[in-house]
Amino acid sequence: MAGSGKTTLLQRLHSHSHAAGSPPYVINLDPAVQHLPYVPNIDIRDTVNYRDVMKQYGLGPNGGIMTSLNLFATRFDKVLDIVEKRAGEVRHVFVDTPGQIEVFTWSASGNIITETLAGTVPTVLLYVVDTPRCASPVTFMSNMMYACSILYKTRLPFVIAFNKADA
């Protein structure tokens, strides 16, 4: 979910793993992010320039992200190769996704990325929920419906992280 703190949570996962003595491998798939609080091992921004994609194809923000992801998905086999190669060394590989559910979960490229990843290495979905916003029953319910739809779409093991629990 957009704005639920995925990137921040990833930073926390990153630092927590480091503290636990097992540095993770981190992949950033969000082309539109301005600044990352962690250093990713693979960054989609190195491959695709989101702003250029938007300009070149005359797209809006979401279309730009989607096209960037589509372009990146064509090279995702390379990413899988690297991940497979590093699989013996690292305990976790974290993948930071774009926040827009329709952009990642319901797009062809997102599907390709998720499924090829799940076919290569054990994959767990981490659905990050913005807890304070869930105070409204309707928001909570739509959040859960999204989570449910993603679970049934991917059929992958699923963990929901209720983020911002301190708020």
């Binding site: 989570a147 699923f158 929901i160 209720f162 983020n163 911002k164 629990a165």
Partner: peptide, 16 residues
């Protein structure tokens, strides 16, 4: 869906 739901309350800010 809730029956087998795996969840955790976390805080990315505080590490809770």
């Amino acid at each position: 869906f809730y029956q087998g739901l795996r969840y955790a309350g976390v805080s990315a800010l505080t590490g809770q």
